[in-house]
Amino acid sequence: MSKVVVITSGKGGVGKTTTSANVATGLAQEGFKTVAIDFDVGLRNLDLVMGCERRVVYDFVNVIRNEAKLQQTLIRDKRVEQLYVLPASQTRDKDALSAEGVGRVIDELKEMGFEYIICDSPAGIEKGAQMAMYFADEAIVVTNPEVSSVRDSDRVLGLLAAKTSRAELGGAPITTHLLLTRYSPMMVKRGEMLSVADVLELLGIPLLGVIPESKAVLQSSNKGAPAILDETTDVAQAYLDVVSRFLGQDRQHRFIEDEKRSFFGRLFG
């Protein structure tokens, strides 16, 4: 049984690639054979965030055009068993992704026994983003507590309900999850940031998790090692919860309330 999961948002810079890298790594750590596909043709970055940029030989578009085999294109992660990356192409040809080609690659990945196929969507609602969501069974909508991001997420929810294989073939609707990232409980407490409750009310989809604003995200992309690998950080804990919830386990939501910090905590925080 394999599941295709799109990580999407509409707006850029909200944490789609970070989330793709962490969720894929977390699922593989749980023992599932997982692949993360970068759909951002022309602006590939998932390889950098996952630290395998120097091992890219062939890419997604090469496979679609039958210029390379899927087996030789997939990059196996050196840290986590069962984890693979399918890098995007750096071509400037916008029409490089066709529904037929993408569908064929996803079918082939399913035949290879991949249990989770994570599709890292590009920003926007153009072809790349449409292709990333087209074959999805589930969607994680990454949103920042900020007006433009919430509005764009709502647009994307409309597309998920209308412009996907499931919608067009009349199947069961895509299961949607909200992931609220770059959340600052302190700003929410001061009334300077939309709260979890506000965003939930506006978008009306179930909450998968809240990722706190944290330096750990930048530090992990600097290193090319997804934050979830270093369990000491709040971001890693938050993503571990997200993966557990995604797998159907019950985890209480954290990082929503402003923790009372000690004097020294505030001094060195």
């Binding site: 007006v147 509005r151 709502d154 300077e192 939309l194 709260s195 506000d198 506006l202």
Partner: peptide, 22 residues
């Protein structure tokens, strides 16, 4: 009014309008 309240009010209008329009 806190800026978060303004954000929520503005969003609830625009989101409802765009949903209706789509």
């Amino acid at each position: 009014p806190k800026s978060a309240t303004l954000a929520k009010d503005r969003l609830s209008i625009i989101v409802a309008r765009e949903r209706a329009g789509s």
